[in-house]
């Protein structure tokens, strides 16, 4: 059903295709959570300031609370629920558990999705603000400092930051293989 206030869109979420009619004001985050029941992505601020809603859209990390659902029409979305395949955790998820990269766990889906997107950006050669002698095609080594800089859009009030950085660094090589 489409009228002045609603639009019909197609979302490909975690390799399944969904057609849905959404309120034009609906964010991608609310569509994922309330229409499609992917509640892993969290609403921490609804302003793009905390990163808890981070998902991958066409392979890149976005804050889904600042993305209108209608603007994601036709996109491929990966949420935290879609990161692990066939019940097997990805290396980064396993590292978060083993190294205790979370406490309350509320920001965790966003941290992990953001980390997966960040590792892809780094692998593609994107430099960051702390990259020395960076160029558009040279990201340098993935150090703890690089991870901290690149992950600073994901707040964690429990402040599991040191364990999160360790988990990302430790899993980065295996994540590159897992793709």
């Amino acid at each position: 059903m489409t009228d002045d206030t609603r639009s019909e869109i197609t979302l490909r979420v975690n390799d399944e295709t969904y057609r849905l009619a959404v309120d034009n004001r609906r964010t991608l985050l609310d569509a994922l959570r309330d229409d499609l029941n992917f509640t892993g992505a969290k609403k921490g601020c609804d302003h793009g300031q905390c990163g808890a809603c981070t998902v991958l859209v066409n392979g890149q990390r976005v804050v889904s609370c600042l993305t209108l659902a209608v603007a994601a029409d036709g996109a491929a979305v990966t949420t935290i629920e879609g990161l692990a395949g066939d019940g097997e955790l990805r290396p980064i998820q396993e590292a978060f558990i083993r190294l205790d990269g979370f406490q309350c766990g509320f920001c965790t889906p966003g941290q992990i999705c953001s980390a997966v997107g960040m590792l892809a950006e780094h692998a593609a050669g994107w430099p960051s603000a702390v990259t020395r002698n960076g160029s558009p095609h040279r990201a340098g080594e993935l150090t703890e400092e690089e991870i901290r800089e690149r992950m600073s859009g994901n707040l964690c009030r429990c402040s599991a930051y040191p364990s999160i950085v360790r988990a990302i660094l430790e899993a980065s090589a295996r994540e590159a293989v897992a793709g």
């Binding site: 959570r33 029941n37 992917f38 509640t39 892993g40 992505a41 969290k42 609403k43 949420t79 935290i80 629920e81 990161l83 692990a84 955790l89 998820q93 396993e94 978060f96 558990i97 083993r98 205790d100 979370f102 766990g105 509320f106 965790t108 889906p109 992990i112």
Partner: peptide, 21 residues
């Protein structure tokens, strides 16, 4: 020992209040 609910929390399966239908 790692958290008993760790797997739920890293896979988006731990249901907080706003996640409960």
């Amino acid at each position: 020992r790692p958290r008993i609910e760790g797997r739920l929390k890293v896979s988006g399966s731990a249901h907080y209040v706003a996640d409960l239908p």
